[in-house]
Design a protein around this nucleic acid. Sequence first.
DNA 1: GGGAGAATAT
DNA 2: CATATTCTCC
Length: 257
Amino acid sequence: MGRRASLTRGAHPLIPIPHLSRSRSRLRHQTPQQLRPTSPPPPLHPAAAASLHKRFVDAVAHLGIKNAVPKTIMQLMSVDGLTRENVASHLQKYRLYLKRMQGLSSGGGGGSDPATDRLFASSPVPAHFLHPNRVPSSDHFMPSFVPIATLQQQQQMAAVAAAAAAANAHLQPPQFHHRQISAAHYVSPTANGQFGSPPANGKFDQSFLARQTQQQTLQRMSTPSLHSPVGNYVEDLESANANGGRTVLTLFPTRDD
DNA sequence: GGGAGAATAT
DNA sequence: CATATTCTCC
């Protein structure tokens, strides 16, 4: 895992540093701030990042791996500044993780790699994501997704429809990693960084949030004594925020919290 | 120096 | 759209 928050490192550049030394041929990793001095450099809130990754997971889960295409996901997320490229990249990683997970699961044995586990285990993963063919009878997870009539955008509607159609195909993804540039892209400059109450997709959020809440509740109830790293969005948010106002967003505890 | 993730290129 | 490659980050 590489770059991300420097919680462990402690000393980290709060502001994006121009890596001109390296980028002589390509200039792709330039920070938006440098490129667009005119635009206000809004520090991405940790909450935003966490919500983003969560949002991504939700979108994919609701859409189903079948319909989980970068374009659809991006539209569903409705995150200003988010591009298809970003989603695609994350999606790739997401798939990789799933594949890895399957191999471990199938291979038998514990299948609990400390590295991989802590890497992706942060996100709520419904059971059947790893085994689409084998759907357990005790499927506690069904998208009771109730679309509200307050749809403002067709995107959401389409997403819901797709989700319903692909209800049988579920997959839970890893987390979204936000780097300085990514974070900036993900969050809108003008936006307050609050995904919880945007008028644009209030309905959408509600559905997702509702589902997430249920998951967390279930997990807590199931393992009250054992504190599972999964489903602790609030903690992530707080931790990230408490880590000293890290400009970069740390979605998941890559290095342990 | 290595590992991991993200962005870019194909 | 998916995959492969590249680069940056810690």
